[in-house]
C-alpha cells in the first residue's frame, strides 16, 4: 500500500486539502467552501482530495493541519501556524520568493523570507478584520454583488473614491452611504479594493518591502485586489497557479519532511541520506537538504545565495 502525506488548511471561511506522494508530487488538492471553521467543510475537502487521489485515509502516513481550526482536527498529527505553512507553500510554488502576502478569511499576513527560505519576519492585521477576506465578503454583500463577480467589476472603476474606515462594519456603513449618494456599484467596489490595498501597504512597510513578492490565499484570485495592491506597492505581484492551496501545500510539505524524518529515524543510525529520502524532491526545487545528515532535522529550502 503506497504511503502519502496530507496537508489541511482549515481556514475561517474555506477548507483546503493537499495530498502528496512520497516524492513530493501533488496527487490531489481540494477546496471546500462551507462557512466558518466548519467541520463539514474540512471533512468535505479531505474526502474530495482522497477521492481525487484514489486512496484511503489509511494510506496517509502523516497529516499536518494549519489555519484557524488547526488544533481541532483529530486526523492531523500536528499543527503549524498559517505563517509557517503559507511561507513554505509559497516558496515551493515560487522558489525565488522573498516576501509573501496572504489575505485569508479573517487575517492578512505579510511574511518576509530569508535567503534560506525560512520565515524571518511577519506582520498580521491588528485589532480588526479590515483588509481581510471577511471584509470583502461583507462589502460584497452590502453592494449586492456575488463575491466572485466583485473583482472583475471593480476593475472597471475609474473614479477615485476613498473608504477610510479601519473597521469592517463601519466600512459597510460607508459603502451603503456611497450607494445612497448615487455612486455606482462598480465605483464603490473599486474603492473597497483600494482600501484593502491601503491596509496591506502598512503591513508591508512594517516588515520592509522585499522582492520577488508572491501573493497567496483566495483573495489572490481577485484581479482588482491584485491590481490595487500592485499599484499601491509599485511592483508586480507573482500569483501562483493555485494561490488558495498554498497553506495546505506548505502543511503537506512539512508532513513530508516529518514522515521522512521518522522513516530515517526508524531505518538506521547511518548518517548517510538514503536515496529514497532525497529531499531534492521535497517540492522546493533548489532544496539543499540532501547535503544534511539524517540524524539532524532539516528545514528544506532553497540554497543560500
Amino acid at each position: 500500500m503506497k504511503p502519502y502525506v496530507m496537508g489541511i488548511d482549515f481556514g475561517s471561511t474555506t477548507s483546503k486539502t493537499v495530498i502528496l506522494d512520497m516524492d513530493g508530487g501533488t496527487v490531489a488538492s481540494a477546496v471546500s467552501h462551507k462557512g466558518s471553521v466548519s467541520d463539514e467543510g474540512a471533512k468535505a475537502s479531505i474526502a474530495e482530495a482522497l477521492a481525487i487521489a484514489g486512496i484511503t485515509q489509511k494510506q496517509v502516513i502523516r497529516a499536518i493541519s494549519t489555519g484557524y481550526g488547526r488544533r481541532m482536527l483529530e486526523v492531523s498529527d500536528k499543527s503549524y501556524t498559517e505563517i509557517t505553512c503559507h511561507a513554505r507553500g509559497a516558496i515551493a510554488m515560487v522558489p525565488e520568493a522573498r516576501m509573501v502576502i496572504d489575505i485569508g478569511g479573517q487575517d492578512s499576513k505579510v511574511i518576509a523570507i530569508d535567503a534560506l527560505g525560512l520565515v524571518s519576519q511577519f506582520a498580521m492585521n491588528d485589532r480588526c478584520a479590515a483588509g481581510t477576506g471577511k471584509f470583502l465578503e461583507a462589502l460584497a454583500r452590502a453592494v449586492g454583488v456575488p463575491l466572485e463577480d466583485m473583482g472583475p467589476m471593480a476593475l472597471r472603476a475609474v473614479e477615485d473614491i476613498t473608504i477610510s474606515s479601519m473597521c469592517a462594519t463601519f466600512a459597510e456603513t460607508e459603502v451603503v452611504a456611497l450607494l445612497a449618494e448615487g455612486k455606482s456599484k462598480t465605483e464603490v467596489l473599486g474603492a473597497v479594493h483600494a482600501a484593502i490595498a491601503a491596509r496591506l501597504v502598512g503591513l508591508v512597510s512594517r516588515v520592509g518591502k522585499r522582492e520577488p513578492l508572491v501573493m497567496t490565499g483566495g483573495v489572490a484570485q481577485n484581479p482588482a485586489a491584485v491590481h490595487h495592491l500592485e499599484k499601491a506597492l509599485g511592483l508586480k505581484l507573482i500569483i501562483p497557479q493555485r494561490p488558495q492551496i498554498a497553506g495546505a501545500l506548505g502543511a503537506a510539505l512539512i508532513a513530508l519532511d516529518e514522515a521522512r524524518e521518522h522513516a530515517a529515524d526508524a531505518a538506521d543510525e547511518d548518517d548517510k541520506v538514503d536515496a529514497s529520502l532525497d529531499a531534492a524532491r521535497c517540492g522546493t526545487p533548489t532544496c539543499t537538504a540532501p547535503q544534511a545528515r539524517v540524524t539532524e532535522q532539516v528545514i528544506h529550502g532553497p540554497r543560500p545565495h
Binding site: 503549524y80 505563517i83 509557517t84 525560512l118 520565515v119 528545514i299 543560500p304
Partner: peptide
Amino acid sequence: EAIEGKKRMIIP
C-alpha cells in the same frame, strides 16, 4: 515556529 526553524537550520 520561526525560532524553531532557525534553531534547527543546518547551513550547507
